[in-house]
Amino acid sequence: MDARDAGMIPYSDAGSLEVIVPDGDAAIRWSSHGYPSALARWHYHPQIEIHLIREGSGQLMAGDGLMPFEAGHVAMIGSNLPHNWLSDIIPGERLAHRDVLCHVRPQTLRLLASAFPETAGFEQVVRRASHALVLSGNSAHEAGGLLETMGEHDAARRVADLIAILTVFQQAPADEVRTVVTPGYNPQVAFGVEDDVNVAIAYISSHLDTVTLSDAAEAASMSVSTFSRFFKRVAGIGFADFVRRLRVGRACRLLTCTDLPIARIQRMSGYDNASNFNRRFRDETGMTPSQYRRAHAS
């Protein structure tokens, strides 16, 4: 599915601002796509987004926050908050059904609250979504199911689905809902630099086994010091930490989805030294690679 098929048309003069064209007779836009996809990039849009990951694992980038996700992950992304989901995939792999999402304008929810005072509590949910609101546990399972079945319903039924999903977010227990972005984050730090971020992410992802800071800086046409500061400021995480998380994520995927020897997985994940690989892997997962493979054996 390309951007036009999904009703999301990138505006060429606005970096990675995504202009989401709603159906003419509907306020809610529902869509789905796989990964990799032209739609899966660091971007932002005025609409509030509710997003389900159906398959795979990886890292959610939202504002200056970074958190791991697995299948069943559900998040609400606030208006104009830059975001992206990076999956841990084997080179050449495609996740055909990874993403399900819907978009709705903040104005629509304000109108809803003005017409139905019973929904006034959604206002706090929307405020928290400005820092990326993520569900877990039973709340994620319930909201994800509602979001997925929304695609089977007509426009009128989708309004009921949206209210039900927002209710799940509103009523989620404290231990099943969290925000990702730091309280003081200003999304304007990312405005106008989205293309640079996407170039850097694309280069890092496609050269994950060999990438260095100087390589990434050169790909982004910056000096090493400028790129290092830029990446930390916009992504909220240092280059080395970001690469380590992606490399360990790739190793986890290879350990669970292939029978490749651990020594080869180590090299494919960008580690020449076994002890360094084991140490970094344990730091991220709490287990050695061999323990991880045994724990996730089907």
Rank of each mutant, 00 (worst) to 15 (best):
M1Q: 08
D5Q: 10
M8C: 10
V21H: 05
G24H: 09
A26T: 12
S31A: 10
S32C: 10
Y35I: 15
A40W: 00
I48G: 03
E55S: 13
S57W: 03
S57A: 15
G58E: 05
I77G: 00
N80M: 14
L81E: 04
I90G: 00
G92H: 07
E93I: 04
R94M: 13
L95P: 02
A96Y: 10
V104N: 02
F116L: 13
T119L: 07
A120K: 12
G121K: 05
Q124T: 15
Q124A: 11
R128K: 10
A132W: 05
A132L: 04
N138F: 07
A140M: 01
A156R: 11
R157A: 15
A160Q: 10
V168R: 04
A174P: 00
P183H: 02
N186P: 04
P187V: 05
G192T: 02
V199Q: 01
Y203H: 14
Y203T: 12
S206K: 09
M222Y: 07
M222E: 05
S223R: 09
S228N: 11
F230I: 13
F231S: 09
G236V: 03
G236D: 04
D241E: 13
R244I: 08
R244A: 08
C252E: 14
T256C: 03
T256S: 08
A263R: 14
S275V: 14
F277N: 02
N278W: 04
E284W: 05
S290E: 07
S290Y: 09
Q291I: 00
Y292P: 02
H296R: 12
